[in-house]
Design a protein around this nucleic acid. Structure first.
Lengths: 359, 359
DNA sequence: CTGTTAGCGCTTTCAT
DNA sequence: ATGAAAGCGCTAACAG
């Protein structure tokens, strides 16, 4: 039906090359549409792609469009990609952590990529044994993707391992080659934290965060030192594994060590659970004895026994901006770092309160 | 250097078609290796692919291998895919929720796919406005992927919307067409829950879970009815949004309604936070007044004010098994449902205790 | 204005 | 044991 011409019926499939999943006839090709519509394939191609400088008889256009629709024509992305040397896919290298930031980041990226007509293939960066960015450039070299979104957690060594030969962008971290970073305003987040605590009369703050070779951690630490100094606050830094255990251990050690700052900033939500548990176990009241602020926002924070104040970062925006930046690189735009500032805000809950009266 | 033959130097790039990202020379092709090694491209192809029935002079093989390595040859996945009509990619449709189950599932799938030589492209299923599975079959029809991993949350309508024309597998849910489901033993999980509470002398259980049109929820509810009945326990079911709010609201309503079961099972970790908060707000002790068990395991549960007992499901195994099953479909194996049983276990923490003495 | 043609990079029969 | 050639489905330069 609706396909009177040659390649439909005829001999019983002239050497069909491969899988024919039980009852699915071979997908319609451009040439099928062309012969059914009685025109040449190139004409069909032009019509279907809306070639600007073309003026075909409207009735012909209509016929082509109808035929294509009837036959359920789908352009073969492979053939197109081979021809045009662009796959329409991006590869996203990401550490698959429980931490909700990655989900929000991923969502922002996927959505924007979809809007811009790109598919996204995910590669997990093993949290233990992270690989250098160049380990993923084969994806572009093999024409599986047009560019790389690099969101591995580590700060880079500074050696160019060849990744710079392919379009790429570092997401939520800074890479060794300038102009390819898409990051958030970690310093701004820390400033929000410091300002808030200063306004509550705290004189000493502690930042518990991940390993120092994580770029976001590094930047938060720098900012904490700077802003606390500017306010004349004493600042302590503790690095720990970005896990509940990490937060727990550090806090325990700290509590046994005498002098405890009156305000804690915690880098990741996983650590936060450990910190809160350790505080609770030690009988330290929150916020009575110590105030706590999380640098990861998550809705569950509002439902904890002591609802936790947090800094909410623009993660979806980061993901989207990273996609935009990468596509710009792919299209040949000059490199240029991107800093996402908005929206970022403090979500005030119960865990940060006035500094305890000084002894 | 190391490339003495024709296509290297010569005229200044004879109409290079497209992007040449600043300093990267054109990727080596099979023909480049061939001419550099002084053999025909088909020979190179055979050698590089380890063609079984081939007997070339070892020295020739060596020369080809060396040349390929020297030139950093990468097979063009596009060309290969076009030729062989298999892309080597799977598409994974997933709702990007904060719930940690999806991360673990995704990780299991990505890892197994990698082992089996497949790339995975992710598509987010919008949580609101979910689309029917057939909405994603274009990915296969356009030759972007060889098959579909469908992990959308909804139970299916039963209408075949055309997805059955392409290799696919439902992950953590059952689809309308038999033989394509890869699911975990939700009933077994519920049984673990019921048995545990029965052993603690509870006589009535409540299951707070997501919307009833979510397949996992549906199965847990069926199982709860069945196993509770078998033990002569009274069972109550409450459906709520799979969020903190959902858990909170339901629990509040329940507490104001008189008669409260002595044991709660909670379907998702997000709801769990809401449930615990509502219990706390109402002054109901856990586990003194009510015992609570989560059907989502997450490490943070061990660090809450009352550490929460949970059922730990084999999510990574589910993801891996789904990939295996899909690849089997792609390779033409007959359809067959998969049920993941192992490993599954109860993690006993503090939130489930003996039933309070009866009034 | 539309058709012809070449060819993207690879695999795979077929021929030598 | 290796080479020749066809062709996957599409697009774009060039003809007519």
């Amino acid at each position: 039906m609706g396909n009177g011409t040659e390649p439909a019926a005829g001999p019983p499939a002239p050497a069909q090359r491969r899988r024919a999943p039980a009852g699915s006839r071979r997908a319609a090709r451009l040439v099928d549409i062309a012969s059914a519509a009685g025109v040449h394939v190139s004409t069909v191609s032009r019509v279907l792609n809306g070639d600007p400088g073309l003026s075909i008889r409207p009735e012909t256009i209509e016929r082509i469009l109808t035929t294509a629709r009837t036959q359920g024509y789908r352009p073969n992305a492979l053939a197109r990609a081979l021809r045009q040397d662009r796959t329409g896919a991006l590869a996203f290298v990401i550490p698959l952590l429980r931490n909700p930031i990655w989900v929000r980041l991923q969502r922002g990226a996927l959505q924007r990529a979809g809007e811009r007509g790109y598919a996204v293939m995910m590669m997990e960066e093993p949290t233990e044994a992270p690989r250098p960015p160049g380990a993923y450039r084969y994806l572009v070299e093999e024409s599986r993707a047009d560019g790389l979104l690099l969101a591995t957690a580590l700060r880079l060594t500074g050696t160019d391992d060849g990744v710079s030969a392919v379009p790429h962008v570092y997401v939520n971290r800074r890479g060794p080659d300038p102009g390819n970073d898409v990051v958030m305003d970690e310093a701004g987040a820390v400033r929000l934290f410091v300002d808030h605590l200063a306004s509550l009369d705290h004189r000493s703050v502690l930042l518990i965060d991940g390993p120092r070779d994580v770029d976001t951690v590094y930047r938060r630490v720098q900012a904490a030192r700077k802003y606390a100094a500017a306010r004349g606050m004493q600042v302590t830094i503790r690095h720990a594994a970005a896990t509940e255990e990490g937060g727990w251990d550090t806090t325990q050690r700290l509590l046994h060590g005498g002098q405890v700052p009156s305000a804690f900033g915690v880098g990741s939500i996983n650590q936060l659970f450990g910190v809160l548990a350790a505080l609770r176990a030690a009988g330290a009241g929150v916020p009575g004895d110590v105030s706590v602020v999380s640098f990861d926002e998550d809705e569950c924070l509002a439902f904890l026994d002591v609802p936790v104040t947090s800094v909410c970062m623009p993660l979806a925006e980061l993901g989207a901006a990273a996609v935009d930046a990468l596509i710009a690189r792919i299209e040949g735009s000059p490199a240029s770092d991107v800093l996402i500032r908005e929206p970022m805000h403090l979500i005030t809950r119960a865990s940060a309160g006035p500094a305890p009266a000084r002894h």
